[in-house]
């Protein structure tokens, strides 16, 4: 499946899950900041991606969960170097840019998950 095909299907998924128009679903649109996704919408999106692309997604695979429970990863509500390294390794579909220790608040991680991140994720999953 081409990247364009994946993108088109993700447009439909987000249209159904978030009630947004397809033209709002641009590659750089952030799921939370631009498309208004809330935490429960992520579960909805996971279920719809599984159905659309016929693969299983483990809990925490697409979106990070329970980060704050680990002091090694989060201090004062912000990601540590170890936390960022862990996320960069585990979530290769997300662009974490040039963030360093203490630059990124946990509550802002959702903003980094863009439509492009979802396309990357699906592409990686389909490649097996």
């Amino acid at each position: 499946m081409s990247r364009d095909d994946i993108f088109e299907k993700i447009q439909e998924v987000l249209d159904d899950a978030l009630g947004v128009d397809e033209d709002e679903v641009t590659p750089d649109a952030s799921l939370t900041a631009d498309l208004g996704a809330e935490s429960i919408d992520f579960l909805d999106i996971v279920f719809r991606l599984e159905k659309t692309f016929d693969f299983k997604i483990s809990q925490g695979e697409l979106f990070p969960e329970n980060l704050t429970e680990n002091e090694e990863w989060v201090a004062d509500g912000k990601l540590t170097d170890n936390g960022l390294e862990m996320l960069r390794g585990r979530m290769t579909h997300v662009d974490f840019g040039a963030y360093g220790e203490g630059d990124l608040e946990v509550s802002k991680i959702g903003d980094l998950i863009t439509v492009n991140s979802l396309v990357n994720f699906v592409e990686i999953k389909l490649a097996g």
């Binding site: 935490s39 429960i40 579960l43 909805d44 279920f47 809990q59 969960e65 329970n66 704050t68 429970e69």
Partner: peptide, 12 residues
């Protein structure tokens, strides 16, 4: 509808 198993989703 979408249901949540809240013990698994509301960390903390």
């Amino acid at each position: 509808l979408l249901f949540s198993h809240i013990d698994k989703n509301m960390a903390g």
